[in-house]
Design a protein around this nucleic acid. Structure first.
Lengths: 339, 339
DNA sequence: CTGAAAGCGCTTACAG
DNA sequence: CTGAAAGCGCTTACAG
């Protein structure tokens, strides 16, 4: 059933070398020979063995996909899912398949991503940055394997990274609040240690300064980007002696949690304004529809794919790219009552 | 830099065979030899080549992941994302990595999944059923490669499948409506041709009959499981001479679309009742929070993993399993005004 | 235009 | 307990 190149060669009355050349589209094969061999391959449903090919060629046409950091940030995070989906689409059209590294089995010991990449001999990989990135990620980063990072700053010679212009995200949020007359603005960040979170915090502070607004340290809190943490942090904010009226959450999920907290506290939701970040699908369906700063996930994924491709082909070197965010205005900042 | 087994062997003063045995945990190697070799492997950061191993062993420890049917049902569908996430978790702890087949490059020609599985020599695969499944999926199904289907009925000797008890989903929805006094019930299905859709439709009809409720053919419509189609179909329902008051949509996304349609039509949302299906994360955050029939995605993914594992190890044969759905009551059926 | 042969890096009987 | 050798299914100079 499962044919080998040898059998095809025999059937066609040619050598293995000739069959191989046909498989790899060499042009120094006679037209008739080629046709006949192709015919036979088709007839017997012959497929070259991937393992044998990549052992001989040292090329795999496989890209490793790694979610760095906490496991729960895995598939379930809408932002990453959309980025990877877009990435997959364009890598797919370049003939690559994606290998998702499981981290469940190894997560106590050192994951050693580099070793696994070498093991599978992937042509390159995409690293999605989460919270608490394992050190072993940086071994990979520094290696000879082309890597493109999303939301993680890579610095290896064969590495590039790409992320939304995070300070700009906060700037858009603060500006929007400012124009709506909001002055009591709180910030719910992601994990405090995370680079993303820091950048958004910094952008927040800077833009507040730009408008001469005071930053109340009591109104700066940190969750973990997920819904529950937004809920908890909002509860805390509601306990403060003075309560903020406008809340900028560094993720839509946390904004959703914050909204839930306000509702459950019995307060009028319309007395508060919320801006989230990401523009995940659910944002427009919640109550109230969430004003948010959109990250262009489609573009990020596509860009990551192009960059990785170019690095693999050695057309470009290490770079980093920022993608512009976009403010999406919906009802959660009282667009209705405005004016 | 990149070491081979040969070099390790030389360094350790033993044969390749011995090194190989150590790699593969054979127990007929001297303790001291083993220790020394392990030491050296560690020191040089040696990792066996995957291609070479799988060529020699005929085992890959890789599972193919295939989204059958329309491309847009890919990563972006919350239901599938959660199932695959759970699947990945338990396969990961069994030492498998996941290979996601891209279908972008090939989608005009026959995708020939079987060929690709043979090419990569995957140990097994999971097939996620969508709309308009390609015929080539069934070649894979009938092959010697163990397959587990989710939401797709596989029948090969080495195949199994698993899905929520679809008729039961509809039964729960109709029962709930019935107990709330709803009698004018509409059904928004997924694509009419899809097996899932048919099963839910059948369950709907049967349960309506059970309660002696009339099925109005004008109130049976079909979308495609996505949000926009729910919106459009609800718009149509609102044009009917007689308008249904209770809507059972075969996906949360469609229910969300339907709710949006009612709102935008200027009608009072409280005059309508909605039940969705899936219980995606967004469901509880929308306005009104959506009553829905939950599919246990976690369990489905885990079950798929266990079954596939057992099939690979030839511990079980072809089976099919139904998972019970669960009604999640929230506000979209007027729980508030009830009583 | 075609083929013989070495090599890719491992594993697995088999012999000792 | 250890090793020599064949084999897994391909590709790639190289010679003709």
């Amino acid at each position: 059933m499962k044919m080998t190149i040898k059998e095809i060669a025999k059937l066609a009355g040619v050598s293995q070398a000739t069959v191989s050349k046909i498989i790899n589209n060499y042009d120094d094969v006679g037209a008739k020979t080629k046709k006949r061999v192709l015919q036979i391959m088709d007839e017997y449903g012959y497929r070259p063995s991937y393992s044998a090919q990549s052992l001989a060629k040292k090329i795999t046409k496989v890209i490793g996909v790694i979610y760095a950091g906490k496991i729960n940030a895995n598939f379930n995070h809408p932002f990453f899912v959309e980025v990877v989906s877009s990435f997959k689409k364009t890598m797919g059209s370049e003939g690559y398949d994606l290998l998702f590294f499981s981290n469940e089995k190894f997560h106590k010991s050192d994951e050693n991503y580099l070793a696994r990449c070498q093991h599978y001999n992937v042509d390159g990989c995409i690293i999605i940055g989460g919270e608490e990135v394992e050190p072993s990620i940086y071994d990979l980063d520094k290696s000879e394997i082309p890597c493109v990072g999303v939301d993680i700053e890579l610095s290896g010679k064969k590495s590039a990274y790409i992320m939304t212009d995070n300070p700009q995200i906060s700037a858009l949020a603060v500006e929007h609040f400012y124009l709506l007359g909001q002055r009591d603005i709180a910030f719910i960040g992601g994990k405090e240690e995370s680079v993303i979170s820091k950048q958004r915090y910094q952008g927040f502070i800077d833009e507040m300064k730009t408008y001469g607004l005071k930053v109340n340290p009591e109104w700066i809190v940190y969750g973990d980007f997920f819904e529950d943490s937004g809920y908890e942090k909002m509860e805390e904010l509601l306990q403060r002696p003075s309560i903020p009226k406008a809340i900028f959450a560094a993720s839509d999920l946390m904004a959703m949690g914050a909204i839930r907290a306000v509702k459950e506290s019995g307060r009028k939701i319309d007395d508060f304004s919320f801006i989230g970040c990401d523009d995940i699908v659910a944002s427009k369906h919640i109550d109230p529809p969430l004003t948010t700063v959109k990250q262009d996930k489609e573009k990020i994924g596509k860009m990551a794919a192009y960059i990785l491709n170019d690095m693999i082909k050695e057309k470009i070197d290490q770079t980093s790219i920022k993608i512009d965010p976009e403010l999406i205005v919906r009802a959660s900042c009282g667009a209705n009552k405005a004016g």
